[in-house]
């Protein structure tokens, strides 16, 4: 015992005096700080650029008008009007996608969490993971060839919604499964011991306990697909008119940003592109805020008190 203590003292003296430790602590802290700063640079500069360039495009007309070309006195064409059609299109697509993907993903997630502990469940989980890593352009091509051309649905909001759903589905499934698995055994046991049927216990007790995680997953996946452009390029077409049906072509902000920013000859187009980008970012930010608010509900408050 004594020799052990002696050894320990010796080694402490040799390697780490208090000042050396404090020095190491400083180094570690500075490195961490540096890395955080580095990581923030791209985010900050993107935000800065988008706000600087996009803010000048903002006006009531920009937010509420339809695209219009005007001829300048010089004879050149210029873009006026606004991007209301694209904003509406994006909202329609987000809603449609959520309506398709959330229920399916939710049920799939519940299934995997509750009954997925077998070969079939593991295969589904694996395929789901593969699907979530799929390049989104491939999903666009798939929907294009099967739905748009193959089944002659044509460029339409519906085709776009299907393509986005395929992207969203694995995310919702995964997050639902994960949040359900976080629900402690004891809660499940308590429900079963009350003589509640398993499906009822799963939906009313387990899923409701996992609620904030599930809602977060769904909202984040909507935020994720709201910025997708590749699959939409091949599925929704374009439109200068407000939404008129799921089988009609629609516009969407990411596609509009792409078109506007690659337009070099019409003046005002680039500026509108920045404006549209700003709106899209604000939209995504709002969704993230919604996540914050949704998870701060009753349960969140309770949890933080414990």
């Amino acid at each position: 015992m004594e020799s052990l203590q002696g050894n320990w003292r010796n080694s402490r003296v040799r390697t780490s005096t208090p000042s050396w430790r404090r020095f190491k602590d400083r180094i570690a802290f500075s490195l961490g700080f540096l890395c955080v700063t580095l990581a923030m640079i791209p985010l900050a500069s993107i935000l800065f650029e988008v706000v600087r360039n996009g803010a000048t495009a903002l006006s009531v007309q920009f937010l509420t008008g339809t695209p219009a070309l005007v001829t300048l006195p010089t004879g050149n064409a210029a873009l006026a009007g606004g991007i209301a059609v694209s904003i509406e299109g994006t909202l329609v697509l987000m809603g449609l996608t959520a309506v398709i993907a959330v229920p399916i993903g939710l049920l799939a997630g519940v299934y995997l969490a509750e009954f997925g502990d077998n070969r079939f469940g593991r295969s589904i989980r694996f395929l789901n993971d593969v699907l979530s890593e799929f390049p989104s352009i491939v999903i666009g091509i798939l929907v294009y060839s099967i739905l748009v051309v193959g089944l002659r649905v044509g460029f339409s909001a519906f085709a776009g919604g299907v393509a986005l759903s395929i992207i969203m589905l694995p995310i919702v499934t995964r997050t639902t499964e994960e949040s359900i698995k976080l629900v402690p055994r004891s809660v499940r046991d308590a429900a079963m011991a009350l003589g509640i049927r398993k499906w009822r216990a799963t939906i009313s007790v387990v899923l409701s306990t996992a609620r904030s995680g599930v809602v977060t997953g769904a909202l984040l996946s909507i935020a994720r697909i709201s910025g997708e452009s590749a699959p939409l390029l091949l599925t929704i077409g374009t439109s200068s008119y407000f939404f008129s049906g799921l089988n009609q072509q629609v516009d969407a902000l990411p596609v509009r940003i792409f078109l506007l920013s690659s337009e070099n000859y019409v003046s005002g187009a680039q500026q509108q592109g920045w404006g549209a980008a700003l709106i899209l970012i604000v939209l995504v930010l709002c969704l993230n805020l919604a996540v914050r608010i949704a998870t701060r509900g009753k349960y969140g408050a309770v949890r933080s008190r414990i």
């Binding site: 308590a190 009753k298 349960y299 309770v302």
Partner: peptide, 8 residues
């Protein structure tokens, strides 16, 4: 362990 339903 007490296990009330946490969301209820």
């Amino acid at each position: 362990k007490p296990n009330p339903f946490p969301t209820m």
